[in-house]
C-alpha cells in the first residue's frame, strides 16, 4: 500500500487531509524538489501528521458514540426515577417537580390549578381479605381509571401506598368538584374481576384550589385535610 492511497475504512478524507496531500504534491512539483534529500523527510513528517489527523477524527467519533450512549441511558434512568413501577403512573418525585414548575408558571404568567388527593377506601381490608397480589391489581386498575379520565395536561401521580394526587391545571374549585365526582362515580360503578372475585372499591377525594400565597406543601396539606374531611363524612365522597 503506497503511503498516499486512501486508507481503508469508511471515514472520508477531510478537507484538512486533502490540503496536506496537495501541499506535498506542490512541493514535489516545484523545481527539482523531488530529488532533494529533505523531500523524503518531509514526506515522512507529512504522513505522521496525517495519521494524527485521522486519529483525532477517530477519537472524536468514538467519544461521541459513548456520549450519545450515556445521554440516552441517563434519559431512560431519569424516566424510571420518575415513574411508579407498579402503576406506571408518575411517582411522588415527579409530582413534586411538576408542582414546583406549575407554581413558577403561575407566579410569572398568572393562572391557577387545583389539587385532588385521592385515597382508596378500606384498602387495608382488601389486602387482608384477598392478599397483596389482589391489592396490587386494584391499585393498577384504579390508576388506569384515573389516568384515562383526565385531560392530557393534568397529572395523576401515585402519592403513597393507596394514595393518588391529581394536579388539574387551569382548573378552579368548582370545575374540580365535577372532575372529582366523575372519578368517584366511575370507580364506584366499576367491578374489578381479580382472580375470579368481584372487587368493589370506592374512593375518597379531597379538593384544594391553589391560593396565590401558598407553597407546594400548603396546597398538598389543604388537599390532604379535605380528604380527611371526606373520610370522616363517611367515605366514597369528595370534600373541598
Amino acid at each position: 500500500m503506497s503511503r498516499w492511497t486512501v486508507p481503508r475504512g469508511t471515514t472520508e478524507m477531510s478537507a484538512q487531509e486533502r490540503r496536506l496531500l496537495d501541499w506535498v504534491q506542490r512541493l514535489e512539483e516545484t523545481g527539482d524538489n523531488a530529488g532533494h534529500p529533505l523531500m523524503e523527510e518531509f514526506r515522512t513528517l507529512a504522513a505522521e501528521h496525517r495519521k494524527l489527523m485521522r486519529q483525532l477524527t477517530k477519537i472524536a467519533t468514538i467519544s461521541d458514540r459513548m456520549h450519545t450512549d450515556s445521554r440516552q441511558m441517563a434519559q431512560v434512568l431519569h424516566a424510571a426515577a420518575q415513574t411508579d413501577p407498579l402503576t406506571q403512573l408518575p411517582n411522588r418525585r415527579h409530582m413534586i417537580e411538576r408542582l414546583e414548575s406549575e407554581l413558577g408558571r403561575i407566579a410569572r404568567h398568572g393562572g391557577s390549578f387545583t389539587l385532588v388527593m385521592v385515597d382508596i377506601d378500606h384498602f387495608k381490608a382488601i389486602n387482608d381479605a384477598f392478599g397483596h397480589a389482589v391489592g396490587d391489581t386494584a391499585l393498577v386498575e384504579t390508576a388506569r381509571i384515573l389516568r384515562q379520565n383526565l385531560r392530557g395536561h393534568d397529572l395523576c401521580a401515585r402519592w403513597g401506598g393507596e394514595e393518588f394526587l391529581i394536579l388539574l391545571t387551569e382548573t378552579d374549585q368548582e370545575q374540580a368538584k365535577t372532575v372529582a365526582e366523575k372519578l368517584r362515580r366511575l370507580v364506584d360503578d366499576h367491578r374489578m374481576r381479580v382472580e375470579g372475585r368481584d372487587i368493589h372499591i370506592t374512593l375518597s377525594l379531597g379538593i384544594a384550589a391553589h391560593r396565590p400565597d401558598w407553597t407546594a406543601d400548603a396546597c398538598i396539606q389543604a388537599a390532604d385535610d379535605a380528604l380527611y374531611a371526606a373520610k370522616r363524612a363517611g367515605r366514597n365522597r369528595w370534600a373541598a
Binding site: P7, R8, T11, K58
Partner: peptide, 17 residues
C-alpha cells in the same frame, strides 16, 4: 444488546490491518 457497542468496535477496527 447494545447496537452502539458494535458500531464502536467497528470504529476501532477500521484503521488497523
Amino acid at each position: 444488546d447494545n447496537d452502539r457497542a458494535l458500531d464502536m468496535a467497528e470504529e476501532f477496527k477500521e484503521d488497523v490491518t
